[in-house]
């Protein structure tokens, strides 16, 4: 594998990371919508919510969510 081929591989990886993040974001937001009462309960009690995703369990803090829409 020469440098040009590896650089092509890197470009594909860059694209995969971008699409991976989009996919993860979509999974998190879908979970918020599909399990809204459970998410709200967790946020009220622990100020954080654990979201199961294909990349593992994602812990999201209430403060991070509030910072996003601030």
């Amino acid at each position: 594998m020469n440098g040009r081929e590896i650089e092509h591989l890197l470009s594909l990886m860059d694209e995969n990371i971008t699409s991976g993040r989009a996919s993860l974001r979509s999974e998190i937001l879908s979970y918020f919508q599909d399990h809204e009462s459970q998410v709200l309960a967790e946020l009220r009690s622990a100020h954080r919510v654990a979201v199961p995703t294909s990349a593992g369990e994602v812990n999201i803090k209430l403060s991070d969510l509030q910072a996003l829409i601030a």
Partner: peptide, 26 residues
């Protein structure tokens, strides 16, 4: 896990609305 996936520049207005609606119910 949360920070890159939910980074502000990557979020669409629809995504932000979903989060706003969720937090409003809190």
């Amino acid at each position: 896990a949360a920070s890159p996936a939910l980074a502000r520049p990557d979020l669409s207005e629809t995504d932000l609305t979903t989060i706003r609606n969720l937090l409003a119910k809190l």
